[in-house]
Design a protein around this nucleic acid. Structure first.
Lengths: 95, 95
DNA sequence: ATAAAGTAGTTTATTTTATAAACCTAATTA
DNA sequence: TAATTAGGTTTATAAAATAAACTACTTTAT
């Protein structure tokens, strides 16, 4: 392939947005990510699971007072994958 | 949305590779695109159709001697869409 | 001349993905 | 106490990507 493969886990608008967000803020909760990305809760829930299963983010579910709270944080593996994705896609963008 | 939407037609590894290719060479045939992208013929056929239906490329099917030949060329609309896509995705890549 | 293999694709079927809609549990407000 | 809101998850549906099978013809070997 003349074009490097793009990590399918990151080549998704919502998951890429989530990663982009997490990289800049280091930690964010479900509601904040939902607001910033404009995603529906259901979709976000599913995509966070996928990123988590891939080991790209750590998800922490706990209670804050009486309310459930889910916070997310990018892992080193996630950071590496993101950087690699950026390098790969740059190849497609500048001919 | 804090993140600009990514044109779904271009946010596909193969279609993006095809566009990237066509932009640099201005015109290419089916076999060449297949080789350069590493795509299977079936997949490429489908994706070229989509790009063509969207008006992003012009597809010309003719005979060269006794063999069928399909050549593709990016349109102005395709060029515009590609440039717009590049701008949008840059937003995701550098936090 | 004819069978086998190659070229240039298209069509159909399957799998994966993305997304929305419905649902759940608990807390708050009217 | 009944409705609404918050913070999600699960299930169902629609859309996409991909591979496999097929078509139609050409070239090569026998």
């Amino acid at each position: 392939m003349a074009f490097k493969a793009l990590d399918p886990l990151l080549h998704s608008q919502l998951r890429l947005a989530v990663m982009s967000l997490l990289i800049s803020v280091e930690s964010a909760d479900f509601v904040y990510i939902k607001e910033q990305t404009g995603a529906t809760a259901g979709n976000l829930s599913v995509q966070l699971d996928k990123l988590s299963t891939a080991g790209y983010i750590d998800v922490n579910k706990h209670f804050e007072g009486k309310k459930p709270k889910t916070t997310c944080k990018v892992t080193q593996a996630g950071l590496d994958a993101f950087e690699s994705y950026v390098k790969s896609i740059q190849q497609y963008l500048k001919p």
